[in-house]
Design a protein around this nucleic acid. Structure first.
Lengths: 329, 329
DNA sequence: TTGTAGGCGTTATCAC
DNA sequence: GTGATAACGCCTACAA
């Protein structure tokens, strides 16, 4: 059976095909009553608006591409909620693309979105160099979330400040041997590390940075080694909540109590960090708001593609929970 | 500037447009060397294969639609991983659609996928009546995950068995006042409740079912009321992990220790349940495998659309953690 | 391998 | 509001 088309709807409703088209786009030029009639008869004969054909024929792209690094990280779910909240009322279709475990494939994820002819791409957690992202944005406008890419629309969260916030919180609790579990250096969130180092140096302490990944298990392994050390840290600052959970795993395995024996602070304030029993102290990125702002930027760029690169800055805040406490004597 | 098309690539590479088309679909009829040459020149002049146009022109749909109920629930992320694992090597593009907070909109989520002209839809966590899902599957083949819809391809997990598994675990620990925090009756996962009731009746006990939602906060509220009761339950079986977390929230607020003061068991064995400190006892649905099987069904249906409705059954298992323990005297 | 003709289901435009 | 026609960028089929 051939798919039912607008032609069929037009015949069934006794109107022209052009009118059906207008009705389904709820464009002006159709009276509300006939619009309703058309849609209902379309519904009856089982017609669904073919977005593929529509998108091909339309001169201007209508959809927004969304890249999310990882579906297992609640932070990105929050971001998505924020995006949807703004995009939906504007009838902008969202096309999703999810990152893979290995960084290199983020580029092909963006390629998928380009292939879907999205007008703009909102990218949360993109793991590629600034220069590559910039190159991509030349083809399809990009909007970076939680990161500032020069020349690219960015909804930035002040990572340096966040890094300082976390570090100074630990310093005030009396910690001196504070380790930073760093994110991979490719990902553009280097500010967190910078903030950590700045605060440590200002306090006259020597920073100790150990590189980790996004995998919780990797963080757990590293933490296990750290804790076995004679110079074991009294506090660990993880580059994100996922990694912090890994650290907590390691503590649990040694029956150490977070916040008492060792302090742990994460970054993102994702929902898991608020799990009862976990109660992870974290830096709140305000993910929802980041998503909203990015979408507002995207809409603005639809209207005016030649706008200067936009920059929105958001300031993270400290969320105190149970995993940080005074240094144990 | 007009988008670069296959025409441009053909000119630049000095070949015919038809050959470029074959090259990008990596179909046969192009030698490996010229294929490589075409792709590289295409890359140089900034061409991206327009999937929209391709999909419109192609007679057979190539993409798989994926509906995920909730990005905040890690279970669905696991399912997605399983889907991708199978779909990617087959070069099947995945089109995602995420459910909204209110159930009624699941239908329109499916509509979005149909509009994208997917050949098949894998739906995880669909909240609609069997009859509605069946009607939908008439238009675009549907594959239901973790649920059996008569007449629709289903990768089913034995919910009745899972419900019994959870209940009997609690019974063996000596619990008698066991409450089931039920899922909304519309969602097709009623087997969990049925299993609970069966096991309770077999043990000569009176089932006590209280209806809840998918929201963690709702579960927390209900649990708070329950615990204040004079006939407070000694164990609570929640219809999924999200709801179980809500129960744990309620316990934490009253400084009750899960597994000691009150036992709590969830359902899904999502990654959060494995969070250190949470350690939620749960029923494992084997999400990853569910996703894999669903995708295998989808591929099979692409090959043979007239297949009888397929049914794959998977058996859940109990994962013991810290939130269940012997009834306190 | 090439070239060409035809079509996929819409949108865009214009005269009516 | 109606028709009719020309795109949109690609796939399909076929003849060369």
């Amino acid at each position: 059976m051939a798919r039912t088309t607008m032609e069929d709807v037009a015949k069934a409703a006794g109107v022209s095909r052009a009118l059906v088209s207008l009705a389904y786009r709820n464009a002006s030029g159709v009276s509300e009553s006939t619009r309703a009639r058309i849609l209902s008869t379309g519904n009856q004969i089982g017609y669904v608006h073919n977005r593929i054909a529509a998108s091909l024929a339309s001169t201007k792209p209508a959809s927004i591409g969304v890249f999310l690094q990882d579906l297992h990280n609640d932070f990105f779910a929050d971001v998505y909620d924020g995006i949807r909240e703004i995009a939906e009322p504007k009838a902008r279709q969202l096309v999703l693309s999810v990152g893979s475990r290995n960084h290199d494939r983020d580029a092909s994820s963006l390629g998928t979105l380009e292939g879907a002819q999205v007008g703009t791409i909102i990218a949360a957690g993109l793991r590629m160099a600034d220069s590559d992202a910039l190159a991509h944005s030349q083809r399809t406008p990009l909007i970076a979330i939680a990161r500032h890419i020069p020349g690219v629309d960015s909804v930035y969260s002040d990572n340096v400040f966040g890094g300082q916030l976390a570090t100074e919180h630990l310093l005030q609790l009396g910690h001196r041997r504070i380790v930073f579990l760093a994110n991979p250096p490719t990902d553009g969130y280097l500010g967190r590390r910078e903030g950590y180092e700045t605060s440590m140096l200002e306090a006259g302490l020597k920073p100790r940075v150990i590189e980790s990944t996004y995998a919780r298990s990797d963080a757990a392994e590293i933490a296990t080694e750290l804790l076995a050390d004679t110079e074991a840290p009294t506090a660990i600052f993880a580059h994100n909540d996922q990694a912090a959970l890994g650290v907590l795993d390691a503590l649990a395995a040694r029956s150490l109590v977070p916040g008492q024996d060792v302090s742990v602070i994460g970054y993102d304030n994702s929902s898991v960090s608020n799990t009862p029993g976990t109660a992870l102290t974290s830096i709140d990125l305000h993910a929802l708001e980041l998503g909203r702002e990015a979408t507002r930027l995207a809409l603005r760029r639809f209207e005016n593609p030649d706008l200067e690169p936009q920059l929105v800055t958001s300031t993270p805040s400290l969320v105190l929970r149970a995993t940080t406490g005074p240094v144990s004597t």
